[in-house]
Amino acid sequence: MLSDFLRHELGLTGTHVGCEHGVCGACTLLLDGDAVRSCLLFAVQCSGCDVRTVESLAGQRAGEGAATEDPLHPLQEAFREEHALQCGFCTPGFLMSLVPFLERHPDPSDEEIREALSGNLCRCTGYQNLVAAVRSAARRLRAEPGEPDAAS
């Protein structure tokens, strides 16, 4: 699976593996810009594709241990401030689902936010804080367009 290839071969353990049958959304990443389940893809299928994982968001290079001075992605900032995560297991999947969502819906309604969150499961927060975080991230992104785009 692509999820296993990332974690075991490349050491990119930011992508979490939950249900391994496409339901929980923990392993969500971007394949050529679209949010997809990496547990339902074979790594060989992605040869030549652009794969973007949670490691790409903050600009912190994988494997270097200590964080660099690069700031968190506005979505990550919002998650931290609004307490949109507790154990953090589901967080990478949520983030990678929400990055393309906010690019396409810069000013989403609560209804649209809930719809966007519906493909990922979280068992800690109860979703209300996730909704608040997405709202807040959307505000941040609108205020400062041109997100940091770190190469992964």
Binding site: G25, D34, V36, L40, S118, G119
Partner: peptide
């Protein structure tokens, strides 16, 4: 049909 992440694929 399912969720966006499923329809993308």
């Amino acid at each position: 049909v399912a969720h966006t992440q499923i329809r993308n694929r």
